[in-house]
């Protein structure tokens, strides 16, 4: 099982530079970069910076949405990123995107399953060098990138249908959601994998939950805030399957909409923090993360919000992992 570090495109450049150096020094397994829509960094440019400033560490986008930019831009950018080094350290993660972020952009999601299936198919055809025409969804008219590439695609998924689809057609999956759901989620992925044309292919299951290092009892407030945000963005179906009391969830959601994150976080109890995040001291965090191995998880991601002091939190967890 591997430990990776995650960050988002909203990270300061100070954090980016520090992480790139740390990755080099510690031979970190992988850095995952999640796209916060319309935030500071450009997801592809930031990924290129990590690839160029490290030499061993793998770098993955986890995830970007095909709904917020032209699909050919994703195809071209991923092609460029895989070309940046001969080790082909890059992985493209695709997902629908945060429900709140998409709705802010006026995007209404009708059939997420079809969107991701379609995006995966079009990207693979473009990279295979095909002249692609597509009349619905992602409209293309004889587009060709004259390439011959194989770029691994992971799906960022939470709902059961997307998890199963990931098992069927993707090269890996990045799962997030309540801990009480993870076992079910990995089983759904495995079901999809069994159904697929090539069930014995290399397939990587990654779990990325918010992680917070607590030191001297400090850090709980950050955990509460991040959990309240995640609760507001978790699909209903996932919450149902986790068996979490719906009334409590609704209270947090309503509070976020009415009063904002800080106020809503006051309603987040310790059992909710436990279910939606990984928290504790470095040793406890690593034990918690390693416990996912029994579900068939291959890789876990530490971050964000990391803890009160993000630098020492990351260093402590990497040390404890050894």
């Amino acid at each position: 099982m591997n430990l990776s570090i995650g960050l988002t495109t909203n990270a300061s450049y100070k954090k980016v530079r520090w992480l790139a150096t740390l990755a080099k020094e510690t031979r970190l397994y992988r850095i995952w970069i999640g796209e916060d829509i319309d935030s500071l960094h450009n997801i592809f440019t930031l990924t290129s910076i990590f690839l160029l400033k490290t030499s061993f560490t793998k770098v993955g986008i986890g995830i970007t949405s095909p709904l917020i930019r032209n699909i050919t831009t994703i195809a071209r950018a991923a092609a460029g990123l895989i070309e940046l080094d001969s080790e082909e350290r890059f992985i493209l993660g695709l997902g629908i995107g945060g429900l709140q972020d998409l709705s802010k952009k006026g995007l209404v999601i009708k059939n997420p399953l079809q969107i991701l299936r379609n995006a995966d198919d079009i990207l693979k055809r473009i990279w295979f060098g095909e002249k692609v025409t597509s009349k619905e969804g992602f409209v293309l008219d004889g587009y060709s990138a004259r390439s011959k590439l194989k770029i691994p695609i992971y799906f960022g998924a939470r709902g059961p249908k997307l998890l199963e689809l990931a098992g069927e057609i993707a090269d890996g999956v990045i799962i997030s959601g309540p801990k009480s759901y993870l076992e079910k989620a990995t089983n759904i992925v495995k079901k999809g994998l069994e159904k697929s044309k090539n069930p014995y292919r290399n397939f990587n299951i990654v779990v990325w939950l918010p992680t917070v290092l607590i030191k001297d009892g400090k850090g709980i407030a950050i955990a509460k805030e991040v959990v309240s945000i995640i609760i507001s963005d978790t699909p209903k179906k996932v919450l149902e399957l986790s068996g979490i009391d719906d009334v409590r969830i609704r209270k947090v959601r309503d509070a976020i909409l009415k009063f904002g994150v800080k106020k809503a976080s006051e309603l987040v109890t310790e059992d909710l923090i436990r279910d939606f995040s990984i928290f504790g001291n470095a040793q406890q965090i690593c034990e918690d993360l390693k416990s996912f191995k029994e579900f068939g998880v291959d890789e876990v991601v530490f971050g964000p919000p990391y803890g009160l002091n993000w630098q020492s939190s990351i260093v402590n967890v990497i040390e404890a992992w050894k």
């Binding site: 450009n42 592809f44 440019t45 290129s48 910076i49 160029l52 032209n70 050919t72 831009t73 071209r76 950018a77 092609a79 460029g80 990123l81 070309e83 940046l84 587009y143 990138a145």
Partner: peptide, 13 residues
């Protein structure tokens, strides 16, 4: 341009 590699990555490299 759609026929070329994604500009910012080339610029970064």
């Amino acid at each position: 341009m759609p026929s070329q590699r994604y500009g910012p990555i080339v610029a970064s490299a």
